[in-house]
Design a protein around this nucleic acid. Structure first.
Lengths: 110, 110
DNA sequence: TCTATTGTCAACCATGTGGTTAAGCAACTG
DNA sequence: CAGTTGCTTAACCACATGGTTGACAATAGA
């Protein structure tokens, strides 16, 4: 079973998917609208969106024959938190020591 | 050719790799030290580290027969920036409007 | 009702991923 | 010098990924 964070990072590892998410940040879109800017078939776009759904980043509402996609930000927040842990490495400020205190989330131990 | 951001997100999509990075946040480590906590062969760990290197997250220094790995945070900062764009979606504060003004980085158009 | 639109699903293909084992090199240790 | 340690590389395997095409379902519109 894939963990949420795995799925989120994997979803964002593809530029096509990142563009889709970026678009959804502006407004809800149908599958067709999300696919349009990309030189891929609708079926391929459909797969991309399924990846985003699996990561919990996108939620779908069927409205008539169109599927309207909506951005769900919480999983992105989790990923952002994970990265923010390393903030003290690229900001000179060592006062970001709070991050250092944060207990490492104990991943992997299965 | 894979772009940096792709590589960073991909590198972080694996819990084993995330644990390695987390470990490197504490101190530099040899390949063996990074591999030790994981139930995988040294060869597999070597591959993981190569993925991290390709993403620019890790730099290697050969010291005698051991390869010492060091965390390089800049690529993580780039990924963090990307995610921070969506911050306004999970914080109620709409005063994070600066993010809204940020021009979308125009990905994908190659 | 007939047709066009929107999208999914299944099958297929090429490539990448994550793991293994086995071989080998380089560098310490005796 | 011989053996051990630390690590990479190559070959292999099973499976996931990203793309395709073609068939199908459901809705919208004539």
């Amino acid at each position: 079973m894939v963990k949420q964070l795995d799925a989120v990072f994997h979803a964002l590892a593809d530029p096509t998917r990142r563009t889709m998410v970026r678009t959804l940040a502006g407004a809800d879109r149908t599958v067709g609208e999300l696919a349009a800017p990309h030189p891929i078939s609708l079926a391929a776009a459909s797969k991309h969106i399924k990846v985003l759904e699996r990561a919990g980043i996108v939620q779908r509402t069927v409205r008539g024959r169109q599927h309207v996609c909506r951005l769900v930000a919480e999983p992105l927040a989790a990923a952002s938190d994970h990265l923010r842990f390393y903030e003290r490495f690229w900001t000179g400020r060592l006062d970001a020591l709070e991050a250092f205190v944060t207990p490492a989330p104990e991943e992997d131990p299965e």
